[in-house]
């Protein structure tokens, strides 16, 4: 039986900074634009369907919190860190650093995977919170400009329709996605072949498989949360 894993605080903090804080600018900019886009698109749809756009802010906010916020943030995070983790561990395997770790009787799983897992879950949750805030703010800008909603109205409807359980479920989704990324990526890294071509291959597979896993997991979670 394998012993209980040890959490290396120092490495975990380092990964939190590296995976979380350094992804902040990307998430900030991208999700701002997603917020704008949702208002734009939903305004089009609502005018088409309901002939008025009073429900646009609420509809877009609910969609952001329940789906797009965590999914798009974590897909961004995947491309930012998934490839990185796989390439890093793959390179360590190619250059026999993994064997060197084992010779020093350091468990590669404890040393490499666990800190990344902690860092990634932290990053996913906190970045999702930031992402949703930014996208709501971006949405507010456009709604005020284009739909003529006042900012008070905007946030009132948003907070009326987005319920507290939605927020909890959203963070749960982020935590699950944040778990999927490092495990899939480091799995790809550990089974990396030799040579620089193999490292590229591992990085590619890590991005693809974790993105796909996030989409499938999102479907399953949405179904569990909202359809049952």
């Amino acid at each position: 039986m394998r012993k209980r894993f040890r959490l290396r605080i120092h490495e975990a903090l380092e990964q939190m900074y590296f995976l979380g804080v350094q992804s902040l600018p990307i998430v900030f900019i991208s999700l701002g634009f997603v917020g704008l886009m949702m208002i734009l698109e939903l305004a089009f749809h609502m005018r088409l369907v309901l002939k008025h756009d009073a429900l646009v802010p609420a509809f877009s906010a609910v969609l952001m919190v329940r789906e797009l916020g965590p999914v798009i943030t974590c897909l961004l995070l995947t491309s930012r860190i998934g490839a990185g983790i796989a390439a890093e561990i793959g390179t360590m395997k190619v250059t026999e650093q993994l064997d060197a770790l084992k010779m020093l009787s350091i468990d590669p799983f404890d040393y490499l995977v666990v800190p990344r897992w902690v860092g990634s879950v932290f990053a996913a949750i906190s970045l999702t919170v930031v992402a949703i805030a930014v996208s709501l703010w971006g949405g507010a800008l456009l709604a005020i400009q284009k739909l003529g909603t006042s900012s008070g109205e905007y946030f009132n409807t948003v907070f009326f329709f987005v319920k507290f359980p939605d927020v909890i479920r959203c963070l749960l989704k982020a935590a699950v996605f944040g778990t999927l990324i490092p495990f899939i990526a480091s799995y790809q890294g550990f089974r990396c072949g030799t040579g620089s071509a193999a490292v590229g291959e591992a990085a590619t597979q890590a991005v693809v498989r974790s993105s796909l896993a996030i989409i499938v997991a999102d479907f399953v979670l949405t179904y569990l949360f909202y359809a049952i």
Partner: peptide, 27 residues
Amino acid sequence: AVGVGTAVQSCAVTNLILIIFTDFFLS
């Protein structure tokens, strides 16, 4: 090998950001 990994990663990130940007502008 490190360079290849970095290229893949920064390719994925740049792609995603540009996709979101152009999506907004096209809309």
